[in-house]
Amino acid sequence: MNQHFFKAKISSKKIINAELCLIRLSVDGWKGHIPGQYVEICLTAQNDYKAYRPYSIASKPNNKYIEILIERIPEGEVSTYFYDISDIGDELLVSKPLGQFFILPIIDKDVILIAGGSGIAPFMSMIKNRYSNKKFQLTLFHWSKNFSGLVDYDVLIKQNEKRNYYPYITQEIPDKWSKGTGRINIKAFEKLNKNLYHKIFICGSDTFVENVNGIIKETFPHREILNERFGDV
């Protein structure tokens, strides 16, 4: 193996809803990351069988820990370990931060972030990293099946004075919900100033990313569009 892995320990685990959990890993010798990057997680069984999967880093850059947002895939080898079994103190391996394309190192221009479900993970890191520089806008669209899947809703709504958070619920719509509903649709982007944004980041399942690409191409024909695909549904 030509890749370096850091030793890591689960230091907290938060169950968000029936599908999502947020895991914090304290990583020995960690040196931080660029928002948008992911790590490869390596789990080792007693017989030395190893499973590797990539997960986006959801936390703000720092040199102690990372957080990953895990969506439980039924019968998924690694995601069910994290959601169902993992506990504080469990040890695993974490690669150095990877990916040098789907990243937002400094924010000096307005960008749009479009997330489907757990695809919000890399954007959580970008948004948390932004607080020091409020001159430029990150506009986040998040499509989720249900309200509980709108991770960080309370925080994001509070900071929404500039109208830069657009939550959408597609299935289990709460009674008093006054924000977006329904699947991704061209109408969602109608109110935006098309000339403002220089990059558009899209993240989620393959199907979600593919759908958004189709819509976005027409709405923002000359913008740079970056994709991160988590897998198939």
Binding site: L43, Y81, E91, L92
Partner: peptide
């Protein structure tokens, strides 16, 4: 280092020679 509680799906009947290192 072993990850407590992780057993993996085993892939026992899998032809391991066909899987390059680190692949699943």
């Amino acid at each position: 280092m072993v990850t407590r509680g992780f057993f993996g799906k085993g892939n026992d009947d899998l032809d391991k020679k066909r899987l390059p290192p680190g692949q699943y």
